[in-house]
């Protein structure tokens, strides 16, 4: 059975179509990412699952049970908020135990469960601290423990890593993935960071303008983007005429990833218009008979100077023919 199902779900705010006729099926036990730029409707979708928003049209099911019209507190679904939303007037232990307290679990039992949850996120001795005394990463873990202690059927994460610095973020990405695997719990993860979505999720839904543009595994999304938008948003891409790419007739478009363009003495000549060294790779801006292209070449390759001519080629099988859009 699917964990969350959207059937023709819309959430309109007056004339604004925040979510517009979305169909989704999130499978039980998967790590599902909702990816899109801000204002694409991904966060509203998450809030629809949590119950903070109600759909203006369509149906939402959580494990086969009708969810529209059900208030947040009756849904066995918990959220890790972007700002963490830890209660400032409670210590960490009471924060984590809050969900059990409002469901009538006794003090001793909920303290035990809260401590166990804190152990799980490696914050064992932090129960007496106040939220204000914790670092960003620690708050994030407390927010996670506070949600997990209720044993939700689905865990929602709203850009949970957005406020962390790069190093911490990478560490947390790994930990979240491990945690999700070991608990076998359904995670729904909202992010605008395509790297994060691709590296963590089992499947990704790409959102734009309130609609789902494509759903698939990270591989599918990256290799076979369904539209020009997805090609552009998920990893930068060269969107070029299909005949130039060598995968179709003129008049259609194809996506070609910059790293798939290689320096090849037998390739086609292109003028180098700019060059930037990025450490892991070198980025080249090229002009191929008037068609601008971006290429990423290995750093150790001898990159041509701007103004000179480079010879490039690519495997046509790597280019992907885009849909009519």
């Amino acid at each position: 059975m699917d964990a969350v199902t959207f059937r023709g779900v819309s959430r309109h705010f007056g004339p604004v179509k925040a979510v517009d006729e979305v169909d989704l099926a999130i499978r039980d036990g998967e790590f599902f990412a909702m990816l899109g730029p801000s204002g694409s409707g991904k966060t509203t979708c998450l809030r629809l699952v949590a119950g903070f928003e109600q759909p203006t049209a369509g149906h939402i099911e959580i494990f086969g049970e009708r969810a529209e019209g059900v208030p947040p507190y009756l849904r066995n679904v918990n959220t890790v908020f972007q700002s963490y939303a830890l209660f400032p007037h409670m210590n960490v232990l009471d924060n984590v135990g809050f969900g059990l307290r409002v469901r009538g679990v006794g003090r001793a039992e909920r303290h035990r469960a809260a401590r166990e949850a804190l152990e799980l996120v490696e914050l064992g001795g932090y129960g007496d601290r106040r939220a204000g005394e914790l670092s960003g990463g620690q708050r994030q873990r407390v927010a996670l423990a506070r949600a997990l202690v209720n044993k939700p059927r689905v865990l929602l994460l709203d850009e949970p890593l957005g406020a962390l610095d790069l190093k911490l973020r990478e560490q947390m990405q790994e930990e979240l993935r491990t945690l999700q695997r070991s608990l076998g719990l359904t995670f729904v993860f909202v992010t605008h960071d395509q790297d994060e979505a691709l590296s963590m999720a089992d499947r990704v839904a790409v959102f734009a303008e309130g609609r789902v543009q494509q759903i698939g595994t990270p591989e599918e999304i990256y290799r076979r983007p369904a539209s020009r938008f997805v090609a552009d948003f998920v990893g930068s891409s060269n969107v070029i005429p299909a005949d130039v790419a060598g995968v179709g007739p003129a008049g259609q478009w194809a996506s070609l990833r910059p790293e798939d363009i290689v320096l090849d003495p037998a390739g086609r000549p292109a003028t180098v218009t700019a060059r930037a060294f990025h450490g892991r790779y070198t980025r080249l801006a090229l002009d191929l008979d008037g068609q601008p292209l971006t290429a990423l070449v290995p750093p150790h390759a001898e990159a041509p100077e701007p103004g000179t001519t480079a010879r490039v080629s690519w495997d046509a099988a790597r280019a992907h023919l885009l849909g009519a859009a």
């Binding site: 507190y73 918990n78 939303a85 209660f87």
Partner: peptide, 14 residues
Amino acid sequence: SGALIDAAMDLGAD
């Protein structure tokens, strides 16, 4: 923050 109210509801508080 308004998120505190959301958080309370989300955790099961009516």
